[in-house]
Simulated assay, not measured.
Amino acid sequence: MTLPEQTPLDTSATLLVSEQPLCAAYDVALLDLDGVCFAGEARVPYAADNVNAARAAGMRLSFVTNNASRAPQTVVDKLKANDIVAEPAEVFSAAMDAAAMLTEHVEPGSMVLVVGGDGVRQALLDEGFRVTSSAQDEPVAVVQGWDPAVDWALLSEGLYAVNAGALHVATNLDATLPTERGFALGNGSLVAAVVNASGKEPLAGGKPFPGIYTRALKRAGGTRPLAVGDRLDTDHVGARAAGIPGLHVLTGVSDARDVVAAPAAERPCFLHTDLRGLTEPHPEPVRVVQDGQEWWQVGDRRARVVGSRLELQHGGAVTAQDGAPVRIDLDSYRALAVAAWDWSDAQDARAEAAALDLPEIEVIEP
């Protein structure tokens, strides 16, 4: 296969093809954690077997996460509890990204106020900074990352320091955090409280900014990286911005409907239901014409857009049925995605873009 250029990444409608399993075609996987390797306290089907198989095939692994609360060993312990083999040196968190970014702005050994937990403190200490939880220590910077212990008092300490002139650095700007009960407040929502009170915009690390991927890749080594994530607006926006192809899985936040409707900046390069996509080949999307009708074909499945509705060659119109999701197989899902992206790009080139009539989609496990 021909690997994509690393910068910039092609934003065309088609998915990429790989005749080899992705773990053989790419030499390092930049794996998201929540929604990919595990789901809160729940296990993700097929995750352990396929991550471990990718490692056994010679693929390097880097666990890249916006969760700034966990220190590397804590991440390793959680992965181990999910039967995934990992080492602390393979973990790269948004806290580590923020600490690395801070070295570009303040002197080594500077005092930094931590609005966060152990993950942020350890990342800063590893970069040679001193840490405090009090603005009275006159910190030169405030690094803010999500942690359940962050409360009004600690947020206020951060605000005191920012108002006194400290540089404000956010590990990430995720508005929400997925939990077993739904979406809770993420770091971005807490950062917004400090910004609202201070009137000063922070520097921000983590996804969707490309720096977390480029810094993680530098640490992991390798020349042909693959990003793996469940969330389009963080994992895949960041990967595209860094020029790294992405594999999207349906075990987390963004569902199949989100993928089919994705704008160019959020589109993955490979699609699967789960991490089996890491150890399998990926078929080529091909534009075909039959009886004067144009289709996108993946495997033996074909899809197109007629008017503003998606249609499968052997399944008819993809429309909602009594509120139930449309159930399709994996290659039909891939064909629908490239057909929708192609149609959407053509619409965007016109003066007025029409909206695609798109129901909820459930992809049947292969």
Rank of each mutant, 00 (worst) to 15 (best):
A123L: 02
R224E: 07
Q20V: 03
A166K: 05
A303P: 08
D83V: 06
P359G: 09
A220I: 07
E294G: 01
E266G: 00
L155W: 03
L336G: 09
V253N: 09
N66P: 01
A337T: 12
A71P: 03
V259F: 07
D147A: 15
T319Q: 12
R240H: 10
V249Y: 09
L312W: 00
V85S: 13
V150A: 10
L3D: 07
E284A: 15
L30P: 07
G182K: 06
S133K: 10
V259A: 09
W296R: 03
A184F: 11
P208K: 11
E107K: 14
A57R: 12
G307T: 02
P148Y: 05
K218W: 01
G35S: 10
D118Q: 14
W295P: 01
A99G: 04
E19T: 15
L79M: 06
R121E: 12
G58S: 13
V249G: 04
E87L: 14
I364R: 15
R43T: 15
A25H: 06
A192T: 03
G58F: 13
G182V: 08
A54P: 02
V259W: 10
S308M: 04
P21S: 10
D137I: 07
D235F: 04
R55I: 10
L247M: 11
L278W: 02
T251V: 05
D151T: 10
D300P: 00
E104F: 01
R276N: 02
E294S: 12
P139H: 06
Q321L: 10
G323R: 00
G252S: 09
